[in-house]
Design a protein around this nucleic acid. Structure first.
Length: 711
DNA sequence: GAGCACTGC
């Protein structure tokens, strides 16, 4: 395998200062030229020209992310109006890299270089280098199954093994085969599916709904694929693409000293605490990054550090703690980027958000207890769990790498080296740990009917596939012979929602309460709307009571949404959009609402409202008839109904599991007899969340196919 | 009595 050098220069933070633009551009050009990747520009372009599929192994977030697409552009891969697509799992990364490349190319973002993520499309007819999330390209494939506008697709961060990456790789492989065939015969332009099961692209962008128009021109240029992985197990990708050529690009990461404990630690929090102070008192300057599993741990370590600091003599108390985890409001997340006051050392207490999503400058020391909170899924119970589990070797490597981004660093692994050797090489791919309903619906819509036979990089279990097929069937998305149903399944596959929520919109249009359901589903689709910091728990509770509905969480969420809407409506005529946003953030803060979540819910709402209208669903409101809306909830979420048991726990009717109402629910104390819920997650207990009171008899009335009178 | 991380024309 050839080896190529590579420069160092992360571009992953969303918090770049905008310096003087000219100086910056000059600086950047110089930096580009000095990148060792620049010397292999020709070589890389040649490799792409010679190989249909190329696997490139190299350090993530470095030169290659920005440089390769530019090389390919210069090498002529955008001739004939073709576009170079670059996909990656995260929105923020897609936008920041695109911005950087636009700047390097001295064009405005949205011109030759553009990016597209959900809710934010910055591309135009002139866009030749298009950065996007992989989920977005999957959505695009629903409309244009041959992805014919792309000459190349570069899949970044393949080692992260996300569900979207796996589905995309399977799809791209198929598309590539189909497109290479189109060069030789014209079967592809037939009015029916090709042997690959792929319909032709409908070039005028009209809805693709199973009737395939003849593609003008017939012949498609081949699609080049480049798979980028930061891990060394490139062989998996190479084998998947029938022995595709692999190229290595050397990184220039600074050396990181790895230190292990002599013996296993019984209490990793205590060990972390000791290590923090050991570094603070004995090591040179530089900030510390500690990987913990969740908010609770972070808050408790934060308290312990403060306590212990008070026992130190005044002059060496110069240590500040900064927490970061995903549900923390953005303003507080930003604190990790602010340098500590002169003479102070920063200790960042983070979840694995700091492993890939957020790159924090100034880190010299990493403390890695070796655990992560991971989601898993039990298809037989239809239940997700969040468990603290040991990390993989790849994760340990990723974590220690965080200490060597700006200079040599140290990583303190709070376990013996022998334990490290016992870790799995890489993390179990997400596709083996999640509910597959969404993936299956999407594949069916892409014309892939044989899900069990689909060429996944790693196959999910048969049981998991069957469970999700069953669920989709019960929702009416699939016919008896497991084909996408028309119109319900077709409509559901168009909506960027969980299948059960998509179905709820269709049901709601029949119950004349689609207005209410659009809001509900948007609010359920985002992270927790309520934010209750520990130190202001009582205040937060009082604030939440203003919105609480005795009927349950769904109506409570509608109340929040509508109140925020009224607040905005009142001020709409008076001020600018930016001021509006600012006012809304202030309103959120006062009401203990997570403004990022509400913002997202408003975006989702407007998007799915558009979809609903396009589908011709009847968008009407049931007004004050909340009985009607609750009946609609029962009809939509009948698969998630539960009955109270004498002890106050609940029995989920579909699976027979004993569950409890999550303490965040407005119905936590009321404990009505019969409820529907939206989420079942096992943490310390089996908790159900987002709950509404219903009448048991509605189930037999509204979902007779599932509930007989005996049930 | 409690919330790992991502993502969707």
């Amino acid at each position: 395998m050839p080896s190529m050098a590579q420069g160092h220069g992360g571009v992953r933070n969303s918090t770049e200062n905008s310096n003087d633009s000219y100086a910056r551009t000059q600086n950047m050009l110089q930096q580009r030229k000095s990148l060792p990747i620049a010397s292999v520009e020709k070589q890389l372009a040649d490799e792409v020209r010679k190989n249909g599929i190329l696997i490139i192994v190299g350090e993530t977030g470095s030169g290659k992310t920005t440089q390769l697409p530019q090389f390919l552009f210069q090498a002529g891969f955008c001739r004939d109006g073709k576009v170079i697509g670059i996909t990656q799992p995260r929105r923020v990364a897609a936008v920041t890299v695109a911005k950087r490349v636009a700047e390097e190319s001295r064009v405005q973002l949205g011109q030759r270089v553009g990016c597209s993520i959900r809710f934010d499309d910055r591309t135009s007819a002139a866009t030749k280098i298009k950065y996007m999330t992989d989920g977005l390209l999957l959505r695009e494939a629903l409309l244009y199954p041959y992805l014919s506008r792309y000459s190349v697709d570069i899949v970044y961060e393949a080692h992260e093994r996300t569900v979207h990456t796996y589905v995309l790789l399977g799809l791209l492989k198929k598309v590539q085969k189909a497109r290479s065939k189109s060069g030789h015969d014209h079967s592809i332009a037939d009015n029916k599916k090709t042997s690959n099961g792929l319909p032709s692209d409908n070039e005028n962008g009209a809805q693709f709904n199973g009737i395939f128009k003849q593609r003008q021109g017939g012949k498609l240029p081949p699609l080049k694929l480049i798979i980028m992985s930061a891990s060394l197990d490139a062989r998996v990708f190479s084998e998947y693409f029938s022995g595709a050529r692999t190229v290595h690009i050397q990184g220039r990461q600074f050396p990181v000293d790895i230190l292990y404990t002599l013996y296993p630690e019984t209490d990793y929090l205590d060990a972390a605490l000791i290590t923090i102070f050991q570094i603070h008192l004995e090591e040179g300057h530089g900030d510390i990054l500690v990987f913990l599993t969740g908010q609770e741990e972070i808050e408790s370590v934060e308290r312990l550090v403060q306590e212990r600091l008070q026992q130190l003599p005044e002059p060496i108390r110069k240590l500040i703690t900064v927490p970061i985890f995903s549900s923390l409001p953005s303003e507080q997340q930003m604190r990790v980027f602010a340098p500590a006051a002169a003479g102070f050392r920063k200790v960042i207490l983070a979840t694995n958000i700091a492993e890939t999503s957020v790159t924090i400058p100034g880190i010299k020391y990493v403390i890695d207890p070796g655990f992560v909170k991971a989601r898993s899924y039990d298809p037989s119970k239809g239940m997700e769990s969040l468990n603290v589990v040991p990390i993989s070797k790849a994760q340990a490597l990723q974590r220690s790498g965080r200490a060597g981004r700006e200079g040599p660093g140290k990583c303190f692994r709070l376990y013996p080296e022998s334990e490290f050797e016992k870790l799995e090489d890489s993390t179990t791919p997400e596709i083996k740990r999640c509910n597959l309903s969404n993936v299956i619906l999407q594949l069916k819509a892409l014309g892939v009917d044989d899900i069990i036979g689909f060429d996944f990089l790693e196959k999910p279990s048969r049981a998991s596939i069957i469970k999700s097929l069953e669920q989709l069937f019960l929702l009416g998305a699939l016919t008896d012979d497991c084909k996408l149903s028309d119109p319900v399944g077709q409509q559901m596959s168009r909506l960027p929602l969980d299948p059960i929520y998509s179905k709820a919109l269709i049901v709601a249009s029949q119950f004349n309460c689609l207005e209410e359901m659009l809001i509900t589903v948007a609010m359920l689709s985002v992270e927790s709307i309520f934010y209750a910091p520990r130190e202001k728990l009582e205040e937060a509770r009082t604030a939440m009571k203003c919105f609480a509905s005795p009927e349950g969480d769904h109506l409570t969420l509608i109340n929040v949404y509508r109140t925020s809407n009224e607040f905005l409506e009142k001020r709409k005529m008076e001020i600018t959009k930016e001021k509006n946003e600012k006012l809304l953030r202030k309103w959120c803060k006062e009401n203990f609402i997570n403004s990022r979540s509400l913002r997202q819910a408003r975006d989702v709402h407007s998007q799915i409202r558009g979809h609903a209208e396009q589908m011709g669903l009847c968008v009407s409101s049931c007004g004050d008839d909340m009985l009607q809306f609750r009946r609609c909830l029962a009809a939509s979420f009948f698969l998630n109904a539960a009955l109270r048991q004498p002890e106050g726990t609940y029995r989920a009717l579909a699976s027979g599991q004993v569950v409890q109402i999550h303490p965040s629910s407005v119905l936590f104390r009321a404990k009505p007899e019969c409820i529907i819920f939206n989420e079942l997650v096992q943490t310390n207990n089996k908790y159900i969340r987002n709950i509404t009171r219903i009448d048991y008899l509605w189930l037999t009335e509204l979902a007779p196919q599932f509930y007989t009178m005996q049930n």
